[in-house]
Design a binder for these strands. Structure first.
Length: 431
DNA sequence: ACTGATGCGTC
DNA sequence: GTCGGAC
DNA sequence: GTCCGACGACGCATCAGT
């Protein structure tokens, strides 16, 4: 839409409202002008995604239209600024070489754009611009109680996080936050709001102004900086955060709506789990659509030597590249005919009902960045019955290892890995 | 009143 | 949110 | 390098069938 419809719209409006345009100057000149206009319309849409307001303005201003022709309007969402994903702190440092920057925790919650309208009411919008005011009556109360005299209107960017105030202000996972009853009234899940940007206040656009800051640590060596940020990331992970955001403070710093901007960098995992998991595919679901005829996801299990049972650990997701499908036929041989069991065997322990069950045949190497834990189903009893561990950011080596199924990872190993990971995932909420 | 399938919105 | 692929 | 559509997990809400 940004690269097709809006430019076309801008051209159409302008050709219509300024018929003499194509008589002035060279073709290239006109093309350049329209290019600039297209960009301006796109930019305007990002801060005011409402064509009823943009179109009349473009018609009025013609080729002179620019983003400053319009203003944000409390009540209409700004397209949220997005961060660029990095694979670790060294990459972030390289991108911000010779730049001033700051680091923040990246909380594991729900993005919220909070508006105070001219009539004084508070509205909450989600990342996708949907209104979710009714889900957070307690947020409204907080703002009603605290912002009366500060600003008549504002638009701010925040993260809503679940916090356990009765238990040492522990920050709970997104999973717990999302278990809130919809439509208000929920006393079980207490929230906390971390505001990290103010895009609009009392009719002004603070983000248009450059930061005036004093730079700390300007003389630190690369190694010292790396150490310091590593420690900060460690703190964030220990505080149940998803990772950290590294934000530039340079002269071009500012809010860039709708951009996976390289002004914000996300570092949310470092190396991945130290150990590879060796898991056995014990079942699978049928896949539809483009991948019809193939299985996904696969249900993966580890082994419990005491109980002599395979216990489910996670599903292997279906995100296979097209090139992978060259091996589909080969793989299918592994899971067809006599290898398919008629029903779930007693030595498979899982609460999941997959479409089909396989004999334990092969071991796949699964790498992951960290575990999360979720409601439902079953699995690693030491963590909690009725919870299901999930590996995030998985990588799979389908070449399989040469281990036999019984030599796959043991339950105890996986539980130990879960408990020792830096990022703390709460497994006891809701009790 | 319970259950499973489906829908919708979040990440 | 991630990912792969088109541009 | 950037953008965008197609995906996935997972929660509650809703509804049809029992």
């Amino acid at each position: 839409m940004l690269r097709t419809i809006f430019p076309a719209l801008a051209h159409a409006i302008d050709m219509n409202s300024c018929p003499t345009l194509h008589q002035e100057g060279t073709a290239k000149n006109i093309k350049d002008k329209l290019q600039v206009l297209s960009m301006a319309v796109v930019e305007a849409y990002n801060i005011l995604p409402n064509l009823d307001l943009i179109v009349p303005c473009v018609m009025n201003k013609g080729i002179d239209f620019s983003v400053s022709s319009l203003s944000m309007v409390p009540g209409i969402t700004i397209k949220p600024m997005l961060e660029k994903i990095t694979n670790g702190i060294p990459q972030a440092l390289k991108l911000f070489e010779n730049k001033a920057f700051t680091c923040e925790y990246k909380y594991d919650g729900q993005r919220a754009q909070i508006h105070k309208l001219v009539d004084g009411s508070i509205c909450v919008f989600s990342r996708n611009g949907g209104e979710s005011t009714s889900r957070f009556p307690d947020l409204i109360d907080i703002f009603k109680g605290s912002s009366k005299s500060v600003a008549s209107t504002f638009i701010m960017d925040a993260e809503i996080v679940d916090i356990d105030r009765k238990n040492g202000y522990r920050i709970m996972s997104f999973q717990v936050l999302s278990s809130r009853r919809r439509g208000g009234k929920d006393t079980l899940v207490d929230i906390c709001i971390f505001v990290f940007d103010i895009m609009f206040a009392n009719g002004e656009h603070p983000f248009k102004f450059c930061f005036q800051i004093e730079v700390d640590d300007a003389c630190l060596t690369y190694e010292a900086t790396l150490t310091k940020i590593n420690a900060f990331l460690e703190d964030a992970l220990c505080s149940s955060c998803e990772g950290i955001l590294v934000k530039t403070l340079d002269v071009d710093a500012g809010y860039s709506p709708s951009k996976h901007s390289d002004k914000w960098l996300k570092v949310n995992y470092v190396e991945g789990l130290n150990d590879t998991l060796y898991l056995v595919p014990i079942g699978a679901w049928h896949e539809n659509g483009r991948k019809a005829g193939w299985y996904s996801p696969f249900l993966m299990a580890c082994f419990n030597p005491e109980a002599k049972k395979y216990q489910s650990v996670c599903c292997v997701m279906s995100r296979f590249s097209d090139s992978f499908y060259r091996f589909v036929k080969l793989m299918k041989e592994l899971f067809s005919r006599d290898k398919v069991l008629s029903k779930k065997p007693p030595y498979y322990q899982t609460g999941v009902a997959s479409d089909m069950w396989f004999c334990p045949q092969v071991v796949w190497e699964i790498r992951g960045a960290y575990f999360t834990v979720s409601l439902g189903l079953i699995c690693i009893t030491d963590v909690k019955m009725d919870y299901f561990l999930h590996l995030k950011k998985m990588g799979i080596n389908f070449c399989a290892s040469d281990r036999s199924p019984k030599e796959c990872s043991a339950v105890a190993n996986i539980v130990e890995m879960f408990h020792s990971q830096t990022r703390k995932m709460d497994a006891t909420a809701g009790d």
